[in-house]
């Protein structure tokens, strides 16, 4: 077990990727705090008892919530080895169609949420990074922080911000033994992705959802989407002691999608 004896907190823990990470961390021997808006989340009918991790109520846009969540960890354990900032939202619009509220909400969750949770976790992570051990903070960037998907302007911008924040935090907190990395997923089969496909009806050229999904899969060198477990595999490695020298990097996990140039049909 790679994370035996470690304490982790995962935000967005009831989302598609967050839930896979929490379950995996528990299997790897970690004590896991599953932080999200509600105990059961909105994407499944599972009861609280069936869901992994110790639930902590956390609206990442609320500083009071961040402080309360970390106070709980401090009281229970006294330190935090691993923080996963997985909470995120996606607005599927161009900037002209995006309202100021939507823009602010995107930044509040994706950027300010990463900031607030990290800010209040750092003292606990510093406490974990003693005697040569490192603590691991993992943000969620995106493939969209590098190259743009159409009609996702605010999302692309927030993920670019997370990438820059990741590097800045790695510089600032590396000397304290805290490693900071970002995972940059491509197309991962989650409720967020399904929402992207069923979305606002703006695209698809009349194609069925199935045809659309197959067309997107076919563009990938691996000819498939990733799964939340694919993400959890890399997150687990980055959280583990094997990754003790890995910091400040943006880890793209996209089935090779961004390695290729536009696939023109010649």
């Amino acid at each position: 077990m790679r994370l035996q004896g470690k304490t982790a907190l995962v935000t967005g823990a009831r989302g598609g990727i967050g839930r896979a990470i929490v379950a995996r961390f528990e299997r790897e021997g970690a004590r896991v705090y599953a932080a999200d808006l509600t105990e059961t989340g909105s994407i499944s009918n599972a009861s609280a008892a069936e869901l992994p991790g110790n639930f902590v109520k956390l609206d990442v846009t609320s500083e009071a919530d961040a402080i309360n969540a970390m106070q709980r960890v401090r009281a229970d354990v006294g330190h935090l080895d691993i923080l996963i900032n997985a909470a995120g939202i996606e607005i599927e619009k161009t900037i002209e169609d995006t309202t100021l509220d939507e823009w602010n909400r995107s930044f509040a969750v994706n950027v300010t949420g990463t900031f607030l949770t990290s800010k209040h976790a750092l003292p606990l992570m510093r406490a974990a990074a003693q005697n040569g051990a490192t603590a691991s903070l993992i943000n969620f960037g995106s493939y969209d922080g590098f190259i743009a998907d159409p009609g996702l302007a605010a999302y692309c911008a927030t993920k670019g911000a997370v990438h820059a924040l990741t590097r800045a935090m790695a510089c600032d907190h590396g000397p304290e033994g805290i490693r900071v990395n970002a995972i940059c997923p491509g197309y991962i089969d989650t409720p967020m992705l399904q929402s992207f496909f069923t979305g606002d009806g703006s695209g698809g050229g009349g194609k069925s959802i199935d045809d659309l999904q197959q067309a997107v899969r076919d563009v990938h060198p691996m000819r498939s989407y990733g799964t939340p477990d694919d993400i959890a595999n890399l997150v687990t490695w980055l959280a583990s002691d094997e990754a003790r020298y890995a910091s400040g990097q943006l880890w793209i996990l996209d089935g090779g999608l961004s390695a290729q140039v536009q696939q023109m049909k010649l």
Binding site: D149, G199, V219, S258, V261
Partner: peptide, 13 residues
């Protein structure tokens, strides 16, 4: 601007 965009089929969305 080609490499600024995701390598998906144009007009897919």
């Amino acid at each position: 601007g080609m490499t600024a965009a995701s390598p998906l089929n144009p007009g897919l969305f």
